[in-house]
């Protein structure tokens, strides 16, 4: 509750940018870093994705977690780093919705990372359209979120 400044849109953006840029200290040993312009692009992309996916985000956002999970990937290097992060962020919010919010952020990121490195071999298309689609279907199938379904069982 102390972080009331986070609810001022400009201050919130600055705070999140700082958090994203702070990740450079950790990611530079893997040969990937973000410039301020990159961080701003990611912030804008985040706002657009949240709007598209009809979600509201509080706090520092998901990007620092995505960065720390994917920065050491064999398929990510400086040239594709920004594009990859943008797409991973889009995929993340899409599948938060597709999994009916039954997964925590950490669970979803962990699964994304495992599939990206394994079956997908660095293909974001495969990750989005095949791996995560199957995963989300499986989650929806056993979801108890719908009351009627729970009572039937």
């Amino acid at each position: 509750m102390e972080n009331n400044f986070l609810f001022n849109p400009d201050e919130n953006r600055n705070y999140q940018m700082t958090k994203v840029l702070d990740c450079n200290a950790y990611t530079k040993k893997f040969g990937v870093t973000l410039s301020e312009a990159d961080a701003l692009t990611l912030m804008e992309s985040r706002s657009a994705t949240l709007r598209d996916q009809q979600r509201v985000e509080f706090g520092e956002g998901i990007l620092p977690k995505i960065i720390s999970a994917f920065c050491d990937s064999a398929y990510i290097y400086q040239d594709n780093y920004l594009d990859m992060l943008q797409t991973l962020q889009d995929i993340f919010y899409l599948y938060k919705n597709e999994s009916l919010d039954e997964l925590s952020d950490d669970e979803l990121i962990k699964y994304m990372r495992e599939e990206f490195e394994g079956k997908c071999q660095g293909s974001l298309e495969y990750l989005e359209d095949t791996s995560l689609a199957e995963f989300a279907r499986a989650i929806r199938k056993r979801s108890h979120g719908f009351l009627g379904k729970k009572e039937e069982e």
């Binding site: 949240l50 009809q54 979600r55 509201v56 985000e57 509080f58 706090g59 520092e60 956002g61 998901i62 919010y93 938060k96 919705n97 919010d101 925590s104 952020d105 950490d106």
Partner: peptide, 13 residues
Amino acid sequence: EKFTGRESTSVTY
């Protein structure tokens, strides 16, 4: 935060 148990930074509209 209470609702998600701090396990999700975002919620649906």
